[in-house]
């Protein structure tokens, strides 16, 4: 099953990944990380993620890894 890993410590909460995901599987969380930003979280299931990597492509901080 494809899956993504978001590096919470690198994420700046810009939310560009949330609009990039065609399946809308990523959201911005409510808690604050070490940098003071609200990091992105994967909210879908592995069945829903296609591993297309568009979220990772759009991330300016290279904070997303994609496995397939």
């Amino acid at each position: 099953m494809p899956r993504i890993e978001i590096d919470e410590l690198r994420c700046k909460g810009c939310a560009l990944c949330t609009i990039a995901c065609p399946k809308k599987l990523i959201a911005t969380s409510e808690h604050i990380n070490n940098l003071g930003y609200k990091p992105a979280v994967f909210e879908g299931t592995e069945v829903q993620c296609t591993g297309c990597a568009l979220c990772a492509e759009m991330c300016p901080d290279v904070a997303i890894k994609v496995f397939k």
């Binding site: 909460g13 300016p60 901080d61």
Partner: peptide
């Protein structure tokens, strides 16, 4: 490494 760019800055991309 962590960059100094602002959130959403396209320099990172």
């Amino acid at each position: 490494v962590q960059t100094h760019f602002c959130p959403g800055c396209h320099h990172g991309t």
